[in-house]
Design a protein around this nucleic acid. Sequence first.
DNA 1: GTTTAACCGAGACGGTACGTCGAGTCTTCAA
DNA 2: TTGAAGACTCGACGTACCGTCTCGGTTAAAC
Lengths: 190, 190, 190, 190
Amino acid sequence: MIQVKGRGGRPRSEQARDAVLHAVDDLLVEVGYAALTMKGIAERAGVGRQTVYRWWSTKAEILFEACVDDAEEELAVAPSRTPLAEITTYLDALVGFLAHSAAGAGYRALIAAAQHDPAVKELIATKDVLGASASAVLRRVDPDRPADDQAIDRLIGPAFFWIMSGRDPARLDTHELARSFLRGLEPEES
Amino acid sequence: MIQVKGRGGRPRSEQARDAVLHAVDDLLVEVGYAALTMKGIAERAGVGRQTVYRWWSTKAEILFEACVDDAEEELAVAPSRTPLAEITTYLDALVGFLAHSAAGAGYRALIAAAQHDPAVKELIATKDVLGASASAVLRRVDPDRPADDQAIDRLIGPAFFWIMSGRDPARLDTHELARSFLRGLEPEES
Amino acid sequence: MIQVKGRGGRPRSEQARDAVLHAVDDLLVEVGYAALTMKGIAERAGVGRQTVYRWWSTKAEILFEACVDDAEEELAVAPSRTPLAEITTYLDALVGFLAHSAAGAGYRALIAAAQHDPAVKELIATKDVLGASASAVLRRVDPDRPADDQAIDRLIGPAFFWIMSGRDPARLDTHELARSFLRGLEPEES
Amino acid sequence: MIQVKGRGGRPRSEQARDAVLHAVDDLLVEVGYAALTMKGIAERAGVGRQTVYRWWSTKAEILFEACVDDAEEELAVAPSRTPLAEITTYLDALVGFLAHSAAGAGYRALIAAAQHDPAVKELIATKDVLGASASAVLRRVDPDRPADDQAIDRLIGPAFFWIMSGRDPARLDTHELARSFLRGLEPEES
DNA sequence: GTTTAACCGAGACGGTACGTCGAGTCTTCAA
DNA sequence: TTGAAGACTCGACGTACCGTCTCGGTTAAAC
């Protein structure tokens, strides 16, 4: 039992919650993050404005809740036979997520908002969306290597920068990226 | 002479232009990008609101004009003796720019805005701020290698992702990053 | 017995009823009619919101029930020896009621609400609070004269207008008002 | 010249001012004072909400400005030959104003609002709408008699109370009211 | 003594007006 | 023509209260 506070009171409407989350998803692709407003979300969800504010403080919070779960799912790739295939497959999934997925658009919007909003920065720090999936892939590639933030960073960084700076995702050679990454992973020449 | 239109007329006030650009710089660090308003800029610059709109359409345009020149300057590093030192020095400059410089904050804000504003996306596409400096460094490291967008991307990407995702710049090991990058640059093993 | 519907069921709580009526009385003098809300009344009375709505539709109804009985009581003056004293005493009571009594404030608020709310207009028409007391006084002054709405009106009107238009009740000369009223009551000169 | 403040700046739009005042007039009769909202006024007037708030703080202020001038005009009656006719004519005008005129509805709404809003009380104290016209009539009836607030009160009060308490204006015998008033005006019997 | 149902409290629900603020436009004055 | 000033329409902000609803508990009358 989690819901303990108080005794009486009407319980939270799961229907309203879902309506809001879906409204955010829809509106993000339709009008973009800048034009995403609490008012608009409430109206689209067919929900009172107060109801939205009761459960979320900002549009960033709603977006976070709406797209984080989707994100992890989209980034979970099936194991491959070789490390190169493994990394390439992951990078393809990453590029697809960042460039084409609705959840990816939400993630990019959140990263963007975090640049000038400390609250969003804290929010996205609570869940390392990209890092978790990358970490899983790296563990499969080299089970002996310890968890390494910076290796994850070298894996994700180039694709992330490519997409964020607005370049065509189709022009990114993930195979070449994967090869370079794996070579960079090799131990120092003795 | 560009200003030819009409016959007479008061010429554009360079003083007002500088006041606006400096106001944007100051306000960005003081209140952040989100709280940056055209009204606020005009008032801080001691300039009429219309005067701002006459020369720039959005706050992004002003910011672009205000910080791009500074950016290139801050990222121009002196040549080093070894490739590893060259790359490490550049990465340190890059991290310093992105994480601590006013111009870097402006650049991050622009990248952020570009995620949901096609106009800003076009705007920042007109000048490859980071790419230009990185390209110069790469040319010094290996003059024979042709210009390679993706190499630039692998050089900048990890640091960019590290900073953009809000992690502590001091915890980033640029030396290790430089080594991995150079190893990734080596030709395929025969 | 009125409560017949259904078969069993818990009877209405008189305690809750009194708590609401007293809460309205208190809140009226504390925050004024405009700031009087159903929610505030319920909270002040320590009663559920639904409980209030179950028995009264509007704050006007509660106020009516809360202050009408008090009103009649406050306006019932003891008989005097002369008509002039009778009328003057009554007018003093009337001014005191309208200007200084909590019930009077409630009455004024109801009259005010009636100006733009037909429901309140009907409500206050069900009980002629001022008229009843004035009628009693007039009967004592001249038992032969038949009931006369307009005489009551001439008796109450001036004091009513004085208070309602916001003038200082202390500056109203009720003695002079009484004399004028009695002279106006005299039969036409032959 | 009144408009001196500052030097530049776009001047106030008289068109917007008139649109607001007319919108208030219209809405008052259409939806009543309670349902009169700043938002509704702005929309009806085809004017920005900010523009309304720039010039008036409350709906009461707008209403005051919108109907006071009309009020004085409607209450200015032509001189009659006898005092009785003079008073009767005035009372008829007064009843017509209070009961049937749009401006009168506005006046009643303001008086009502003043009962629970000190700001409105101060507002309506700045201009004695009814008193001014009544005073003019009384001067014509008896030029020697000095200005007498209480006489004005006895003249207006009964009609005011009759209308405010919601009784049928057609059932009010203004002729009888006028006779009683004039009798009450006579000097004390020696 | 068990139903049985209306009671009470709490609080979330969909609405809507509030007054403020920033947007971008327009219109004046003075230099 | 340029600048500064400031009013214009528009619309989102977050808050408050509206009246309704839906819960968990309680309590007194009817069987």
